[in-house]
Design a protein around this nucleic acid. Structure first.
Lengths: 154, 154
DNA sequence: TGCGTTTAATTGCAAATGCAACTATTATTT
DNA sequence: AAATAATAGTTGCATTTGCAATTAAACGCA
């Protein structure tokens, strides 16, 4: 294509950061405007709802939501205070605890989804083709794979 | 390509969020390990350094860094306390203030860059081709353009 | 000119986050 | 089995964020 561009990778990274910040900000505004809790709550509720028996160990939940253990402890505190989640002591390992989503939790998650989905659609999906989605997804999967499971080194 | 995939857009969005969270976490760890401040500081310093006369109005800086005005006020408070930035009252509009990067600020930014750059490279750039970078960048630019300048509506 | 409006930036206060230390329990060594 | 290490989760405390209200200056216009 003629003149070579310096490197578009740096620009891609910058754009990745900016796009994330702007989109998340917009989504949070929409949720707040609808009188709904933040995305962080949604993520945890959704992770629990998908889980086999609607429960996950704190550790698993923290990993899936990509937040620290201590932050998850407090987030679950808040969710529990709101009646959306309950803690259950683990029988087989008495150190551990499960977070279990309640019926109210499921109801709220279900109520949040349309607002969240509409935001994703309008802000993100409507502007990219199916093909582009794949072209974004594939490299990101590779990136994530490299960070997460860099194949045990010895 | 034969069997149609449900929609890869949802998966792309999920991946976008996860990749962002994981990569940022890793980058922050590397900066902290090197005894350096967070990316938020870097962003502000870099925005100022790029600016014409090494200064920007608080408003512009907040927009560029995608953070709220009030948060920027405090972030600049901290940067100022660290001697990396100074505030300058605007002459032509006495409500306003400029944030100006200091020599120390420039020095620190310069010291942070190699660590940050190495992280971006290893975690992100090394796993995608130049072509893929473009294929990510283009749709994201469109997305961002749509959110930001949705063409004045009336 | 004077009055209401908009804009820039900051502040108060509550909520959320990050990090290091701590408790309880299980796993490993010897 | 006792001693040591490792793991799960929580807590204390300091930092950072978010939101609403506030102060100050500029603008718009009657």
């Amino acid at each position: 294509m003629g003149k070579s561009l310096e490197s578009s990778k740096g620009a891609t990274w910058a754009l990745f950061l900016t796009a994330h910040a702007v989109l998340l900000e917009q989504i949070e505004v929409r949720l707040a405007d609808a009188g709904l809790p933040s995305l962080a709550w949604y993520d945890v509720l959704w992770a629990l709802e998908r889980a086999g028996s609607r429960r996950l160990r704190m550790r698993e939940l923290a990993d899936m939501s990509v937040i620290s253990r201590s932050n998850l402890t407090r987030l679950v505190d808040r969710l529990e205070a709101a009646g959306l989640v309950a803690r259950e002591r683990a029988a087989e390992d008495r150190r551990g605890a499960f977070a279990v989503i309640t019926a109210e939790g499921r109801a709220l998650r279900k109520k949040m989804w349309p607002v969240y989905a509409a935001a994703i659609k309008e802000l993100f999906e409507d502007h990219i083709t199916e093909r582009e989605a794949t072209q974004i997804r594939e490299p990101l999967e590779r990136v994530l794979g490299a960070v997460r499971g860099p194949a045990v080194e010895d």
